[in-house]
Design a protein around this nucleic acid. Structure first.
Lengths: 355, 355
DNA sequence: GACCCGAGCTAAATCGTGTTACAACACGAT
DNA sequence: ATCGTGTTGTAACACGATTTAGCTCGGGTC
């Protein structure tokens, strides 16, 4: 009665208080609650008593004290360029599923492609003791941290980093064989911005596959997304279809010697289609358009988009799984690269080439 | 030399180690580094010496130990239903700007509309000592936490919560006056899912404004988005245009006695347009469609969407500002509600009613 | 009787910081 | 000599959990 139980700050039950209340030592209570291996010798009745009291007094172990001891925080850092509509949300849907199931939380940090932020954020998050990093679409070369790193859609062969990548050869092959099979020979290519790791990688795949299939890549038919369009500093539209609209319009003003366009992603493809329509073309009768990613609106825009589906959610899930696994077994060997398979989704935006 | 400096785990400099190295006590070093008021008496030279050593040895105070002592974390919790394409990313763009500028990080937690998670996550994040909460599109009634809360797009008059809301009367008035002005009299309304706080609020505004303008709301022309479509458990498409496609299709199978549709949001509007086209209608010649939000794809879908623009980014910015202000001055008075103004954006999806 | 053993527990150290209470000393004033 | 009063620090505890090392006691073995 004089145990002092009633004068506590309510809702803040200690291990000490719990132990006092039970007439046991903190050690015993802790061992039971954590189901520690050295708790074998504790009889079931005592166990039961401890569990019940913890439940009844609504005991919650203090997060910081526990983390201080075990030096792990049950949280990871997610580094991404921005909170973009297409890519980010889809990958994160998969990531979140896995992290949540493992009782992990995550910090998100957007570097907006700024070099200094790409170096600064990892340091700041290490100070907050994240147990690992997940990089989305972000070059990993410069990142040196004392915890495991998994990079999704990056291609840096660096110690400590596991890459989750798409099989780009297969992806490009499916798209180009589809167009080739429809009779397209003069194909325009829209390259991604330099900053994005996938851009160069995919471009090389395009050149290689083109040689294999026998498609000529004409420099006059290669356009490039302007990296500025991706920046936050545009304010209102960080990553609008505009990024595809502008280069397509520019190309159309020079010449119209192509029957199909292979776009860097779906958002750009939607913009490109808009530019084609504005120029008096109809899609797919006059020009076929192929996108990349298969974001949600791809199926519902008009015309619906033929596109190379990246299994973004699965890539997120897989990435998170690997990261959690590497965190749990820090000295186990880990894969340097994991490849995921794409899938061509044929919809309305492609058709046989006009004669 | 034999001070043991070289046999440390590198990158892990203690306060103790720093103090030893300096030949001072931990207290002194701590006082200097935190610029504590009781450090007044410490001479500038000693100060200087401490600061330099900390810099040189790259000393970083342990986050857990520090938080364990002072229980605050320089981070906030963001609670949202999901990482949806339209709403979430736009609001967060504004939020992130403000938080980053104030050197705050944030945890994101998606409750997926599950009651138990809406109660559980705040508790878990309080354990992690977040300094405040930001609720997106999430009812705040049940949330009891010892830190400031700002709710964006919610309408709960609860102690401790500041609401950032849209002026729904103005929003609905602009949309309906636009349609009324184009000659539309028989208008179909798509209500939002029950779970979303804005749904009921907007519906009441619709009823009131309709009375004021003289538009009849016919129960046969009211459809509702099926809440299940929003759930994660659908796996692949958490929040696709499908949510608008299905109810629109169902309505069209019953009757076609309307010349315009006012949709709950842009994503649903895109789905509804698709359903109208599938049924042989053309938009806007046969049926006008008005959306809500003005998400990025609204301007680039075909036809481009007439919609009520919510200043989502500004709402996020404002919400974060208020939260940070309330965190910094915990006892200052705070606003219970802040109203933001909408703006009608007229594009291609609306036209004069057919005779 | 010495020795070991397992069952059932506990005291005390540890993690790294922040903070309170107090020590040692100098200097001048009484 | 004593007292006050800054100055310049330090020892020790608090925060709350985990973990190591070990204690006690009854019973069995040789």
């Amino acid at each position: 009665m004089a145990k002092g139980k009633s004068l506590n700050p309510p809702g803040h039950v200690n291990l000490r208080m719990l132990a006092e209340h039970l007439g046991l030592s903190q050690t015993t209570v802790s061992l039971v609650l954590n189901n520690s291996p050295s708790a074998k010798s504790i009889p079931p009745e005592t166990r039961q008593r401890v569990m019940e009291a913890a439940e009844r007094l609504n005991y919650r172990p203090n997060y910081f004290a526990r983390s201080l001891r075990q030096s792990r925080s049950m949280s990871v850092g997610v580094l991404a360029p921005d909170l973009s509509e297409g890519y980010f949300t889809r990958v994160m849907n998969g990531v979140v599923q896995e992290l949540t199931a493992a009782h992990y939380f995550y910090f998100t940090a957007c570097h907006d492609w700024k070099k200094e932020l790409i170096e600064q954020y990892p340091r700041m998050l290490v100070e907050r003791a994240v147990d690992g990093f997940l990089l989305l679409n972000t070059p990993a070369d410069q990142i040196q941290v004392p915890v495991p790193v998994v990079a999704i859609s990056a291609h840096s062969q660096v110690e400590n980093v596991t890459n989750i990548v798409l099989d780009h050869h297969a992806a490009v092959e499916q798209a180009l064989k589809h167009l080739h099979g429809l009779g397209h020979r003069r194909i325009a290519f829209m390259r991604g911005p330099k900053a994005i790791p996938d851009s160069e990688f995919r471009w090389e795949a395009i050149q290689q596959v083109s040689r294999e299939i026998g498609i000529k890549v004409d420099a006059n038919n290669v356009i490039r997304i302007d990296a500025e369009g991706w920046s936050m500093k545009t304010g209102y539209h960080p990553m609008a279809p505009e990024i595809g609209y502008k280069p397509m319009k520019a190309l159309l003003e020079k010449h119209r010697d192509f029957t199909a366009v292979f776009c860097f992603n779906d958002i750009a493809a939607i913009g490109a289609i808009r530019a084609l329509k504005d120029a008096g073309f109809s899609v797919p009768q006059d020009v076929s358009v192929v996108g990349f990613d298969d974001i949600q609106s791809a199926a519902f825009s008009t015309p619906s988009l033929t596109t190379v589906r990246q299994p973004l959610m699965e890539m997120g899930k897989r990435g998170a799984q690997v990261l959690l696994d590497r965190i749990a077994n820090r000295d186990k060997e880990y894969p340097g690269e994991i490849t995921m398979e794409p899938e061509l989704v044929v919809r309305e935006s492609t058709a046989a080439a006009r004669a």
